[in-house]
Amino acid sequence: MFSFIVRRLLVILPMVLIVITIAWALIRLAPGDFYATERGLPPAVEKNIRAKYGLDDAWYIQYGKLMRQLAVLDFGFSRKYQEQTVNEILRRTLPVSIWVGLSAYLIALVLGLTFGTIAALRQNSALDYSSMAAAMLGISMPNFVLGPILVLVFALTLFWLPPGRWEWVEVGGIYLPNIKYLILPAITLSAVYMAYIARLTRAGMLEVLRKDYIRTARAKGLSERQVVFRHALRGGILPVVSYTGPALAFLVAGTVVVERVFALPGLGNYFINAALNRDAPLLLGITAFIAIVVLVFNLLVDIAYAYIDPRIRY
């Protein structure tokens, strides 16, 4: 197990390097510069800007600089948001994205597992069909439709919740999100995941429930409750576990749509703007961060596998 973790950790490093190099090459190849606007610049003004940011340096000098930045995980100042460093932006936006992402995943996990399990246990019943229909709706309804519908109902018609934005509340020195602002984004974001988890759980459970060891457990005279929770669920949720790794990484970094709909100060907004603004330091910084998060989460999932599934040994 230990050697497995070490081996995987060693793979992470070159993977991050490759991801960063590709991202760096792409942003260099993308037409246009971060300073360009519809207002044309006189040659001297443009020259000064290029000199200030070293844009005309040879590619290996720029790449070398990037590697040094990667080594210390400090990408310096953003180009668009001139006085903010990339790390500052990450530090500030990450908590928002994590709160929204984790709340959404928690909702998705609880409801998805419940619906999936019930559907599997009552296969082909009305309950099964209706929960799977709801799941199908969740998968097919994109965030940018669900979000505005929720806003329309709860914020603009009932005036119960704010239509967007974010607030921190200080509770004994710790900053917590104001739950009023968290509810709608979290629900919007959770819908797709809940639907997936429900379907994965149902499929996994159906497969496991037909296994011999479940029959054995039943034959031993265990209560249905014990059969389901101690034996079936453990195997049934394996697909959900392997889905969790990338899903969590995506939830933290890929919540762009929800962040835009609700005007949340999260990471996703910066990520997409960095690409559109050709803000190289910010884009590379966030890319590096996401690459590391995805790889680490995948590793964690593999470790979790070993604990959940007695058949897997590294």
Partner: peptide, 18 residues
Amino acid sequence: FPSVEELTTAMNLYKSGE
């Protein structure tokens, strides 16, 4: 000065009186 990216979000905030 709240910073708002999406026009519709801005309108929602205006409409809800924020």
